[in-house]
Design a protein around this nucleic acid. Structure first.
Lengths: 104, 104
DNA sequence: ATCTTGTGCAACCGTTTGATTGCACTCGAT
DNA sequence: ATCGAGTGCAATCAAACGGTTGCACAAGAT
C-alpha cells in the first residue's frame, strides 16, 4: 500500500515543487510561463513537472505549440485519505497497548 | 502553511523510513531492536529516527538505559487533513476555470 | 567488580538530486 | 519564408542523502 504513496511523498517533499504546485493551483501554466515567475530555470522546472507528472499530481495539456500543466487535486485528496487511515490505525494500536498496560 | 508540511513529506518520502514507521506502528521499539529485524545498521536507523522525531512523527520514550520510539499517528492524521484541504481547494479552482471557459 | 548491551559521535563514501548551461528542433506568428 | 518563442535532450556540477565502519562511553545485568 505504501509502495504507491512513497514516491508521491518524495515528490511533495521539496519546497520548489510546492511553489510550482501552488502556482499551478491558481491557474494551469507551461514550463516557460512558470520560469518567468519563479527564480529557477525553465529546464529545472521541466524536470520537476516530469516528476510531478509521474506520480499523478499534475497533468500535461497540449495547447498549440506549448504544454500547459494542470494540478490534480483529486490525487492529493486520495493520498490524504490513505494517510489518515494509516494514522488512525497506529493511534488505535497505541491505545490498545495502553489499555493492556493498565491491566497489569 | 506548506512550510511545516514539506519536511514531513520529505521524511515520508523514503522507503526505509516507512519500514521503520510500520515496525513502530506494531509496537514501540529501540534503535537496536529495530536494527535486529531490519537489513540496515543501528546507526542508520538512529539517523532516520532523528529525522522522524524532528518532524513530529515519532517520539522518544526513555525506558531504563534504552530509548524506545513511539509512532505518533495523530501527527500523520493532522497532515492528512491539511493535505486534503489543499487538494479540494485546487479542485475547486479547476472547476471554476472550467465554468468560466464554458461561458464563452 | 565485571561484562555486555544500548547509545552517541564522527569520519568517510558512493549515489542521487536539484540546478545550470548549451544546443538542436519544431511550429505558430509576422 | 523567416523569425522567435517553446520545447526536448545531454553534459556537467556541487550539495545533500542514505549508508557504513570505528570508537568511546554509560548503565543494567551477572
Amino acid at each position: 500500500m505504501t509502495e504507491i504513496l512513497v514516491p508521491v511523498f518524495a515528490a511533495l517533499g521539496d519546497e520548489t515543487r510546492w511553489s510550482i504546485l501552488t502556482a499551478l493551483g491558481e491557474a494551469p501554466a507551461s514550463a516557460s510561463a512558470l520560469a518567468a515567475r519563479l527564480p529557477i530555470s525553465r529546464q529545472a522546472i521541466a524536470k520537476h513537472l516530469e516528476i510531478l507528472h509521474r506520480v499523478g499530481l499534475v497533468e500535461p495539456v497540449p495547447v498549440g505549440r506549448e504544454v500547459r500543466y494542470q494540478v490534480l487535486g483529486l490525487e492529493l485528496s486520495a493520498t490524504a485519505r490513505r494517510l489518515d487511515a494509516i494514522g488512525t490505525a497506529w493511534e488505535q494500536r497505541l491505545a490498545d497497548i495502553k489499555t493492556i498496560a493498565e491491566g497489569l
